[in-house]
Write a protein that binds this DNA or RNA. Structure first.
Lengths: 218, 218
DNA sequence: CGGGTTTAGATATTTATGTATCTAAATCTT
DNA sequence: AAGATTTAGATACATAAATATCTAAACCCG
């Protein structure tokens, strides 16, 4: 069930942020970047930055830094974002429509071709340039367009059912925003996203902070 | 800049998922849960589950399991989700409106009171039950309503500016969905959410998987 | 052109996280 | 009722990640 072991998870999670920043710098006309600057931007240690970047195979120049163009290309290639991935999104609710509308995915090689929803009222409409199609069409669509990735934005209660359809249709990567661990065959990769996890972290940080300072009453 | 050290980050990130599942089970009428069941749901080891739960101080019964009611209460208290947190959301774009519309936050003690946007066309409208207000009103609103948390859904380029306004207005926790490390005073907590990080992980998992099996051509 | 400064990258260390082993308590089975 | 099974929780161990230390290369400044 998505049991591919991946090391350096924290590093990989940070790569998109490097990529974002590097693209920004390139637009500004910069061609070289040194670790300390990136470290400040990321709010992490310099050594972490160097180790992160080294995963891509790019080598910098002591006393100088890294070539931005090289870094961008290497990160994109390391992530496989230099080739287009076609995806469908299922569940055109609030989160689903937000993801459809996010332009940044193009930069990540991700093309959301279409959205699917069970609600017949939504079917046939166009959402931010992408067609919204009735769920019953999902399997045929995925097969015809050779879609390899599915983005799951349905309520947890129905997530496994939709997941099963995706798998049956040939989808091999699932980006799962439903709050369930999906059961899938061994050759299907699942990445679960729990947005509330970040909120939990923020909450605890705040509690710890108050516990440490605990002289603030207002 | 949000430099509160938090240990057991992975554990804390998992707590919302436990909470979600436990609530579900309670609705189904169950009152006791044992580790193996939760471990299967989470797709992690049993020992990890026990260690996770132990952080809340709840103690289970050998041979039996944990009382679901106790667990729910303890997790909520540990996260501070038993008391309401009032928040404003800035940036009523696609992601912002998705977050506004997410009902689950009530369960997490989070009340998004209002949304703010720079676009005058949006100001004055109501979005999923919450008023959308012009950005210029932000500071006054935060002060008047004693808002303690800000949810930042604006483009990265303007994130620091909005952040500064939030801090100046008295906000002390910022949930940051913009792809920048914000600079804030030491008493302000920031949690950055990089959605693309999960996509990066999924991409790498897929590449590794193909590399391992590498007998799949289509 | 020579010494100080910046910086990448290797190695070593520390810290955090996940995993295994063991013991004792409660339940189940017969 | 006695032994087998399930399970929590403690302790010990292994792995992963972050941090520190060192060396050498390029640059800057005088």
């Amino acid at each position: 069930m998505g049991r591919v072991k991946v090391q350096k998870m924290p590093t990989i999670r940070r790569l998109p942020t490097y990529l974002y920043r590097l693209n920004e710098m390139r637009k500004e006309g910069t061609s070289i970047v040194a670790t300390p600057e990136l470290a400040r931007y990321m709010d992490i240690g310099e050594i972490v930055v160097r180790k992160d970047l080294s995963i891509t195979g790019v080598t910098g120049q002591p006393g100088v830094g890294y070539k931005i163009d090289e870094l961008i290309a290497a990160i994109r290639e390391f992530l496989g974002w230099n080739v287009e991935t076609k995806a469908v999104l299922v569940g055109a609710g609030s989160l689903g429509s937000a993801l459809i509308g996010y332009d940044g995915f193009e930069e990540y090689g991700l093309s959301i071709i279409a959205a699917f929803d069970r609600d017949p009222a939504k079917a046939g409409t166009v959402m931010r340039g992408r067609p919204v199609i009735d769920m019953v069409e999902l399997e045929g669509f995925v097969r015809n367009h050779k879609i390899s990735m599915g983005i799951l934005c349905v309520p947890a209660a129905v997530a496994q059912d939709i997941c099963d359809i995706m798998v049956k249709s040939g989808i091999r990567s699932i980006w799962n925003f439903a709050n369930v661990a999906l059961k899938v065959p061994a050759d299907v990769i699942v990445q679960r996203e729990v947005i509330a996890g970040g909120l939990a972290l923020l909450s605890v940080k705040r509690l710890r902070h108050f516990a440490e300072t605990d002289d603030e009453e207002e």
